[in-house]
Design a binder for these strands. Structure first.
Lengths: 226, 226
DNA sequence: ACAAAAGTGTTTAGATTACACCCATGA
DNA sequence: TCATGGGTGTAATCTAAACACTTTTGT
């Protein structure tokens, strides 16, 4: 049919805000841009949506290519579409964010591509409107983390409540009260305590927990008052 | 530069979930689809993003075309991009939602196009994935209305607290306690009471209120516990 | 024994909820 | 005056926040 034929087509890109957690800090995976325009700026990993894939699939593909990881939590942020946002061509871009475990990240890729993990509080100048994408992605992450334990995606399968609290400290850029945080999280009923302690970070040792299977964490109680 | 040239281009559409409020109900503006495929289904008003406009501008343009209204509250919902969502061609669609006053809506347009206002609880079969768009838009609206007085966009500039409560009843599909709702809303400090009463809906008459100018309503207190 | 981190308990302030009650007015 | 919605007040409950206290263990 000829219905659509009078309308323009556009390049549609996906850019990924990839969050990791290391050294008590929330970090972002960035790539050096090796060509003009804007050579020298850092950029979010991205790519173009192909004919046979949805945007979710494109985002997963790009994440796989840039980190080696699959089956990762990802979520749409929003579309960035100012006609001149990329001076080279009209590109409509859809931002995603992902939460990954830096300890699973393939170090080889870092070396090959020159990618780096930057602390969220100390980012270099970013390409185009990528800083806006990061800001929006962070506020989405905060929102989501406010009513689910999504922050645990940044940690290994087993983690202590202290580790989890520090992740939340990093995500919300504030310090949660240890006692209150523990009580609040446990009251959600989505964590399972293991018969195993982490002895490496203290003398007494802290119990490991893991997220219960088959638990729909969202829609339950609020973790952080927003 | 030839960097992008190997990648496919796509039609990018904007579809608008247009909410209105009438007869104590939340309603949706729908268009009859007059041609195949899916002739007879109802559809959200939509259009294609042009070369010189952002998606926000496209959404505003489409809203203007279909309702005659300008400067309306609109917000991105999300992208729908399954490769086969439109059987006719690969179309990536970005859903928006808007809140308009039905009383300002141009009746002429209804007659010309066959458009109709449908109660949100009693929708006909919708085109493609438009039902998903509506569901997602509604939950975004609820979320936003949960921490701002955005619901007042559905009412005239002056409204009584009873009218506002009924709008919130419709948005959240539950009944708020009259006394508690009133206290909560007033405690936000974003409404200004006028020296004017609405005598048409009761003997005693209820004071009109309006949203204060220059007040950033968001980020304040929560209205509805989610 | 004691320092240091893990974990528990207590107290207070504030918010939410349910619901009783008073007020103003037209018929 | 009385029925009807508009508007206020209050007690019971729940939650968040601050912070003191107890437990465990390596040195």
């Amino acid at each position: 049919m000829e219905l659509y034929v009078n309308h323009p087509k556009h390049y549609v890109a996906v850019d990924c805000v990839i969050f990791g957690y290391q050294d008590d800090q929330l970090k972002l995976l960035l790539y050096p841009r090796g060509f003009e325009p804007s050579k020298g700026n850092w950029s979010l990993p991205g790519g173009f949506i192909q004919n046979d894939e949805s945007s979710d699939e494109a985002a997963a593909r790009i994440l796989k290519q840039t980190t080696g990881l699959e089956e990762i939590f990802m979520e749409q942020v929003q579309v960035f579409s100012k006609p001149d946002r990329d001076p080279e061509a009209r590109v409509i871009s859809l931002a995603y964010y992902a939460l990954i475990r830096i300890d699973l990240y393939d170090e080889e890729i870092l070396k090959k591509t020159g990618a780096e993990w930057y602390p969220i509080n100390n980012l270099p100048t970013l390409l185009f409107d990528h800083k806006d994408m990061v800001d929006k992605a962070l506020s989405r992450l905060q929102q989501k983390a406010g009513y689910s334990l999504i922050g645990s995606e940044l940690l290994p399968e087993m983690f202590t409540l202290i580790q989890l609290r520090k992740v939340y400290d990093a995500i919300f850029m504030r310090e949660f009260d240890p006692g209150n945080f523990r009580k609040k999280i446990l009251s959600l009923g989505v964590l399972e305590r293991l018969d195993l302690k982490n002895a490496s970070e203290s003398k007494k040792g802290a119990f490991y927990y893991k997220v219960k299977n088959n638990v729909d964490e969202t829609g339950k109680d609020r973790i952080v008052k927003l």
